[in-house]
């Protein structure tokens, strides 16, 4: 199987006055194309930092990050922007929708800049929001807003979908339905999906589970038979 992502000796340091904080401390891992990855760890472990680097929003202090064979750690600002534009879909804990664009327009916002986008309305149907197309974000619930955010990331037709605590602001049931959606997307459209969470209970649903602690990866666990999201409990 092709490697979608190869991370080699990745280090990200923050300099705070005299202190150097190693948010990511020499980690290496590979991700197969089309796999459903769960990145686990306590608060402050460095998960978001890894995800931001993978998403081209941040640059490593040292180490290499290959995405589809290209070393993105060497990219300059414009190249990184192009990389985010064409290869990456990002979903945040806080949905970060444009408050003054309708649901469908929020999705179109992403599709209009892509070379190979999906149809906005179709994507919304995929996340089950075809009825709310013309509502504004303030008129729909948090879970629905997160669905819009996922649709927006998805509609760009990216290779990789990165989700930072996508269920963090949602209740159990809604969170579960979001995970279900992400899993379905991963299985159906063969996209690589990485989900960052501190919730241990989510681990069994992933093909690959990475555990982080204080900037280091403490375990890499391949799951040959991930359980379906519906049967997961937390």
């Amino acid at each position: 199987m092709n490697k979608a992502i190869r991370v080699k000796n990745l280090v990200r340091e923050y300099i705070m006055g005299d202190n150097i904080i190693k948010a990511v401390d020499d980690i290496s891992f590979d991700v197969d194309e089309g796999s459903f990855v769960i990145l686990l760890g306590a608060s402050g472990a460095g998960k978001s930092t890894v995800l931001n680097i993978l998403g081209g929003m941040d640059k490593p202090t040292s180490g290499e990050v290959f995405v589809a064979g290209q070393d993105i750690s060497k990219y300059n600002k414009t190249e990184l922007t192009k990389y985010r534009r064409d290869n990456i879909g990002f979903v945040f804990q806080f949905y970060n929708l444009m408050p003054n664009l309708t649901v469908v327009e929020n999705v179109e916002l992403a599709t209009q800049i892509c070379t190979n986008p999906l149809n906005a309305s179709e994507t919304l149907r995929l996340v089950g929001l075809e009825e709310r197309e013309n509502n504004f974000p303030s008129q729909i619930s948090g879970g629905e807003q997160q669905r819009v955010a996922i649709a927006r990331a998805l509609a760009k037709n990216p290779d990789i979908l990165l989700c930072d605590e996508p269920t963090g602001a949602l209740d159990y049931k809604t969170g579960k339905s979001i995970l279900e959606l992400l899993a379905r997307i991963c299985r159906q459209s063969k996209k690589t999906v990485i989900i960052v969470t501190h919730n241990q209970a989510i681990a069994p649903i992933g093909d690959l589970v990475l555990r982080m602690k204080s900037g280091k990866i403490v375990s890499i666990e391949k799951n040959e038979n991930p359980i379906p999201v519906e049967s997961m409990e937390w």
Binding site: G55, T81, R84, R85, N96, L109
Partner: peptide, 16 residues
């Protein structure tokens, strides 16, 4: 600023 950051994450170029 949040919206602008979102646009950046989505891959909008500075000029756009």
């Amino acid at each position: 600023i949040r919206e602008l950051a979102t646009l950046m994450v989505l891959g909008f170029y500075d000029n756009e």
